[in-house]
Simulated assay, not measured.
Amino acid sequence: MPTLFDHARAGDLHLPNRIVMAPLTRNRAPGAIPTPLMAEYYAQRASAGLLITEATAISAQGQGYADVPGLYGTEQLDGWKRVTDAVHAHKGRIVVQLWHVGRVSHVDLQPDGQKPVAPSAITAKTKTYLIKDGVGSFAETSEPRALDASELPGIVHDFRHAARHAVTTAGFDGVEIHGANGYLLDQFLKTGANKRTDDYGGSIENRARLLLEVVRAVAEEVGGGRTGLRISPVTPANDVSDDNPQALFEYLMRELAPLHLAYIHVIEGATGGPREIADRPFDYKALRQAYRTAGGKAAWMVNNGYDARLAQQALDDGADLVAFGRPYIANPDLVQRLRQDAPLNAPDKATFYGGGAKGYTDYPTLA
């Protein structure tokens, strides 16, 4: 059986170990432009087998939180190029997470103060992060408007365009499509947010249509072997739910199998919460089996609440990669600490969102 510290392959990505840094929103990109401090932050963590960046908006419409980075302007691409250069100088591998938040936004963050967009005009019972007069705070999301079907090809194009420039201009080794946690693609997938009656609503096949169009477009643009997908079958994050997630996601796996993706990134349970949800049971082994039976060969990445023991158990049970989120905030040398069974630094929760170097690039490493 492989260990966390053995080499792995995820499509075209050759990884020195099986430890992945999961996406972590830190709100330190004023004007949606990555900073030199962000380059330092990611370079510090380059010993991970793979770094997945914080979620990064594919368009101004896709922005949902203050001071999160974008990937749709020249300054943003230049900023990310400094990040990828710094990571590659430390022999790391890094992909960018492509993000459209959909209804999880606020009019203050949208172009010209417009309403956020969604599959249906249903407000998400959740909060977003705003910064006013230099002070950050959480605020209720704004009422969205339903996207017209004629707008959806434009969103697919934005994902394709962002993926192309991420790889060819910003120097990323690949991309991860954010199809999880109640953001736009997940909103289309799930019955709680999608009440449409056109070709993008109703049946499982219709609700999965937009996500599949996006994945196919991105894989065509940068290669399936450089494309990952993140999903969260049962998380209640951002007020999202589905009537029959098992059938929905097993269908999705069968459709994804022929695309020869780099990896499938699965959040098990509630994002940042319990791995098992009493009222939302889900069979993750059956999900992986559905994918493998359909011929899918992408690396299988698991995520949510893993420590070294659980991670090794996951590998023993057939996973290929394990993503660690919160431990990477305070432990840039997490690979070394796991290898040596060393204690982990505790994160400073007051510095999670917004700020500067404090609680970001100043955590101690092992000697």
Rank of each mutant, 00 (worst) to 15 (best):
L15R: 00
L15G: 00
A29R: 09
P30G: 13
G31V: 10
A32T: 15
A32V: 15
A32R: 15
P34T: 01
L37S: 03
L37D: 13
M38V: 09
M38A: 09
E40F: 11
Y42G: 01
Y42P: 02
S47V: 08
S47L: 10
S47R: 12
L50S: 00
I52F: 03
Q63I: 15
Q63Y: 06
G64Q: 11
G64W: 05
P69I: 11
G70Y: 00
L71H: 09
L71G: 04
Y72S: 10
G73V: 12
E75H: 12
E75S: 14
Q76P: 11
Q76L: 06
L77T: 05
T84L: 08
D85L: 10
A86Q: 02
A89K: 14
K91E: 13
R93A: 11
I94C: 07
V95G: 02
W99T: 00
H100E: 08
V101M: 11
G102Q: 03
R103G: 11
H106R: 13
L109H: 03
L109C: 04
Q110N: 03
G113C: 08
Q114E: 13
P116W: 05
I122C: 04
K125C: 13
K125E: 15
T126L: 04
D133Q: 12
V135W: 11
S150H: 14
G154M: 10
R160A: 13
A163L: 11
A163K: 10
R164P: 02
A166I: 05
T168Q: 15
G171Y: 01
D173M: 07
V175H: 06
E176N: 06
H178I: 08
Y183A: 06
Y183V: 01
T191K: 05
G192Q: 09
A193Q: 14
A193F: 08
K195C: 06
K195G: 05
K195V: 15
D198T: 14
Y200G: 06
G201M: 13
G201L: 14
I204Y: 08
I204M: 06
L211G: 05
L211Q: 07
L211A: 04
L212I: 15
V214F: 08
A219H: 12
G223M: 12
G225I: 04
R226G: 11
G228W: 00
L229W: 04
R230P: 00
P233Q: 02
V234D: 09
A237Y: 14
D239I: 04
V240R: 04
D242W: 01
N244V: 01
A247W: 15
F249P: 03
L252D: 01
R254P: 05
H265Y: 04
I267W: 00
I267C: 03
R275D: 08
E276R: 14
I277W: 07
D279H: 12
P281V: 04
K285R: 15
R288Y: 12
Y291H: 07
R292Q: 14
T293A: 10
K297F: 04
M301H: 03
V302E: 02
N303M: 07
Y306V: 00
R309K: 14
R309D: 14
Q313H: 05
L315V: 06
L321G: 00
L321T: 00
V322K: 01
P327D: 10
Y328M: 10
Y328C: 03
N331E: 05
R339M: 12
D341F: 08
D341Y: 09
A346R: 13
P347S: 10
P347M: 14
A350G: 11
F352V: 00
Y353T: 01
Y360G: 07
Y360W: 12
T365F: 11
